[in-house]
Design a protein around this nucleic acid. Structure first.
Lengths: 229, 229
DNA sequence: GCCTGAATTATTTTATACAATTTCAAGCCT
DNA sequence: AGGCTTGAAATTGTATAAAATAATTCAGGC
């Protein structure tokens, strides 16, 4: 596709399998096995693992190998906290600059989302969610923040996947909020869209913490209100 | 030191040289030359470059080699914008939990800073600045955000280094603001410290944009005020 | 004279082979 | 019996060498 190098395509495939859950959290990733599985040598596998470690999906201990990054409530809370801090700013910058083709693509994603919801295809939900969010922030002209948010969205998908198999009502709520956000952006109600986005992320955070059996404020104190910036 | 592997130590050394300016922005990093320079093979060099690319210090084009990430005003503005979004939150969480040994270390850094200021040792300034900031945020219990801010501080040092050689007055201002921030944290005035931190970062941003000859709002519109979070 | 295009060169990328490190278990000593 | 050392097995880290890809050069034609 866009990866002209073998390390890149191996990395994309491993990432997909981690997000799918095919490589469960905490499992060992042996270079030899992966190399055999992909019909390649260990060196491109190593480089792919290094790249994934930078994204936070893999942890490498020197001389002890690589493992899929474990899932911890504290980690999920921090990722969602970062999202709540960054995404509203991106949306505020990007929303006024969104074009008609952008909204067209957004509606296409929403339709796919509805179809996946009917089919119970939870695997597609994560990628569509990430696509929609990144699309809405795409005109902000903040490449670094955008890449960072992309990593955070991918990580959050690992947690929400666990939750959604037992709690499908959250999917419909997310769908409603997504549609409303797109509508607000299209009608120029930027600050309302940002406020809804904050609520959207915070709700995901509280629902996820409840699902994980952790009181929301145990691992992570909320962002203090006197930081207005 | 703490790098038990050759790739790690090579990566640290290349990072140091990029931050020093010994490898100037935009210069090509040939694997063969680096390998010969470090007396190693090209493979640990490759892995080091991959890690540095994740930090944003190096850009790799497939089959075309690696180069030191170029310096652009827009990039600096985005890095400072992210710092302004993230650091106050970390400080608000960490400041109430700072211990007496932490403040002792902070004062040590401030003394070293003053010494470096007397000696005109601009190379040490960057690392001391990073150390101080990360120390103040260390009790926030946000490992991911802390690592991210560390990368952002390193990148900002590349720009401020250029500026400070011609504008040493900024160094003294930074010193005053650092001392005041530590004092406010020690006396429990957390919100005042956070407000000062925001001003500190924003001032660095405007001064840097002025130095780079770019009007502050040309490349980057400021964060909109209606995002309160 | 300038553009097109194949051969050449330089560099990156990958494969194979070897060395260093960790882990686990068995045996020894206290 | 318990803890420590020691050795073997497995796995990772590194070096060397071959394959692949992009940039360059130089010849040939329009």
């Amino acid at each position: 596709m866009k990866n002209q190098t073998m390390a890149g395509s191996i990395g994309s495939e491993i990432r997909r399998r981690i997000l799918d859950g095919r490589y469960p959290a905490g499992s060992q990733l042996r270079q030899d096995g992966l190399a055999a599985e992909f019909g390649a040598s260990r060196i491109p596998v190593r480089e792919a693992l290094f790249q994934l470690e930078a994204e936070g999906l893999v942890r490498i201990h020197p001389h002890r190998g690589a493992m899929v990054a474990p899932l911890s409530p504290a980690d999920a809370a921090e990722a969602l906290e970062l999202r709540a801090a960054l995404e509203p700013r991106l949306l505020a910058l990007s929303a006024p600059l969104l074009t008609e083709p952008d909204f067209h693509r957004a509606h296409g994603i929403l339709e796919d989302y509805a179809a996946a919801l009917r089919d119970g295809d939870t695997a597609r939900w994560g990628t569509l969610n990430t696509e929609l969010h990144l699309l809405l922030y795409g005109r902000a002209n903040r490449p670094r923040a955008l890449g960072l948010v992309g990593s955070l969205l991918a990580e959050c998908d690992r947690y929400t996947r666990l939750q959604l198999s037992t709690d499908p009502a959250e999917l419909e709520r997310a769908d409603r909020e997504h549609r409303e956000m797109v509508r607000l952006c299209r009608n120029g109600h930027v600050s309302a869209a940002c406020a809804l986005l904050v609520d959207h992320i915070n709700h995901v955070a509280t629902a996820l913490m409840a699902f994980l059996g952790e009181p929301a404020d145990a691992t992570q104190t909320p962002a203090p209100s006197h930081v207005i910036v």
